[in-house]
Amino acid sequence: MIVDTHLHLIDKTALRYPWLSGVPALDRDFSQDEYSTEARRAGIELALHMEVDVDPADIAAETTHVEGLSKKPGSLVRGAIVSCRPEEAGFAAWLDKVKADPFVKGFRRVLHVVPDDVSEGALFRENIKRIAGSGLTFDLCVLPRQMKQAIALVDLAPDVQFVLDHCGVPDIKGKAEHPWREQIAEIARRPNVVGKISGVVAYADPAIWTAETLRPYVEHTIGSFGWDRVVWGSDWPVCTLGGGLLGWVAATHALLAGASETERARLLSGNAKKLWRL
């Protein structure tokens, strides 16, 4: 069975998503029911909701909305990685409030949509350090050119558990493996980082990719982090840009064909259940 650590639900009637207007293929509702139908067919047993970069005024509302969805009969959602703004002065008070909510499993601030120096700010870094000891994670969503900033942040907060999204967002369509390979190996040297094998189909050519297209990127990420520090995620519905959930799950199984049963279980469910206490 599979734990999906990277699910996005989109409800435009409840929340505002300014960035969706620039991605027409995703500019609609993607409901829990639509996801659950495909997810159950794929063998997904539970999921964590990943924040969808809503309008800043809707950050708290997104958590409340998704928690409400999780209480519906048959929901696969067991928690949420919620949006945050560590660069803002109110972060410390906000953190004290949300970390008491058992539904919240971690935080994310998408860094490739802001200037590169945002994560270099003194307030941002001090606020990230505040997460230490909370049992909550911080997802790093960065482009390869921002890996230097990501590594610096990890080194400055060694007691915070980080999760690197999407194998570090390699340019699979452009067949670019360098300096991505060196960057992955370097950040994986930090024991407080977990690699997320998620949604890489969105970075491949949707017309021609196969499991073998993805293999160099997935295998290098797993090889760098090791089987005890990798988790799996769909990145639904972003993965629909590259073929969809069922295609990504099928490719994952093909890529893991040579792994042991224990190794597969760690990547697909065991590590996530341990990391987020699911």
Rank of each mutant, 00 (worst) to 15 (best):
L255H: 06
D165A: 06
R78Y: 06
C167Y: 00
V238H: 00
L267D: 01
E261G: 14
M147V: 02
A188C: 10
A122P: 06
D4V: 11
T252W: 04
T37L: 13
G74D: 10
E34P: 06
Q32F: 07
L95D: 04
V154P: 00
W19S: 08
I44D: 01
L69S: 04
P237M: 04
A57M: 10
E34Y: 10
D165F: 03
S134Y: 04
C239P: 03
D159L: 08
G106F: 01
E62M: 06
I2K: 03
S83E: 12
G121Q: 15
G199R: 03
D117R: 07
S21H: 13
L267E: 01
W209F: 10
L111N: 02
I184W: 00
S36V: 12
T64N: 13
N271C: 10
A60C: 12
H253P: 01
W19M: 09
V110N: 06
E182H: 10
D228P: 09
A39R: 00
G174Q: 07
E67Y: 05
R108M: 07
L69E: 04
E186N: 11
E38L: 14
A176E: 11
A60M: 10
V3R: 03
L136W: 05
S21T: 15
L46C: 15
D11P: 04
A176H: 08
V231D: 00
G133P: 06
V194F: 15
A188I: 03
P102H: 11
L278C: 09
D139N: 09
A39V: 13
G195E: 01
